[in-house]
Amino acid sequence: MKPEHSWTPSISADPRLASSVIRLLELVESTPSGVAGALRFGEHGAILVDNRKICWAFARDMRFGLTELLQNQYEPALPRADIEGVYRRCRQEGRPITEGLLEHGLTSELGLRRALSKHHGEAIAQLARTFTTPSDFAPSRPGYDVRYSFTAAEMLALSGANVDPSRAARAQSELATHLVDETTGAAFVRSQASSGALVIAVAPHCQLPLVDLLDVLKRATSLFDVADVFDPGISLLRAACCERTALVAWRDQGVCYAGLCASRAATARLMSSLSERLTAPAFAYAEPPRQKGAARP
């Protein structure tokens, strides 16, 4: 496989652009629940949505298309004609393109999801650059495979991950290691570009509305800031939301994590897992090592 960071959506650290991306993703979340349709941005492009998840996005002036992304998943690159041939056959047969690509062994499920996320991320980045609002939301029949659709939180994290793909991959692995049933969560770093928190990884299928996710991440950061006043070594905290639910936040190597627990048992398991690691001799809260970006595994 080729390193993939050479094909990443062009989200920049520009605060105005980051805010514009968030605004677009919040528009996706504001579409009617259970309804498929297109958020159309006139001549600039569109975001196709099914039940508030992003199924497809396109924009004018995209730097790369899905075909290029699929071609360049392999070394040497796949012949363009092979991929376009599958597109053609699927259209003739009225089948989803994703199905054809997998059937012909041109990509894997994971590879396809990665390629689609980058494609849609690039489209959303380009749409965000236009700072336009959608002209309408046109309902349509649902027809996309839910395996290849993305929540707003997932798409935001995929965009944020591009700032440092290797750090994002570590953060995703950290979430996978510690988050248990009945929890969801996200990893983030401080950033002036995105209202204080740049989301770099989220739990799979995280459905927390962006406005709430970003709010809780900012509050977790603030809690650590206040805790630093009396003990800068504090790297794990638990704040009860009610008798059952809680926010668990931790930080490691410059990355902050927030786990949202829907039950006392989930909170206990997450705290246990994290405090075991915290008290292990090898663990010490530290700033992140400076590493050059590497491809996601």
Binding site: D231, S235, L237, C241, R244, A262
Partner: peptide, 17 residues
């Protein structure tokens, strides 16, 4: 998170170093 906001006065905070 599907909790009971009516009981939100429960607000224990645990901090671990």
């Amino acid at each position: 998170l599907g909790g009971e906001p009516a009981g939100a006065s429960y607000s224990e905070l645990v901090l671990v170093s």
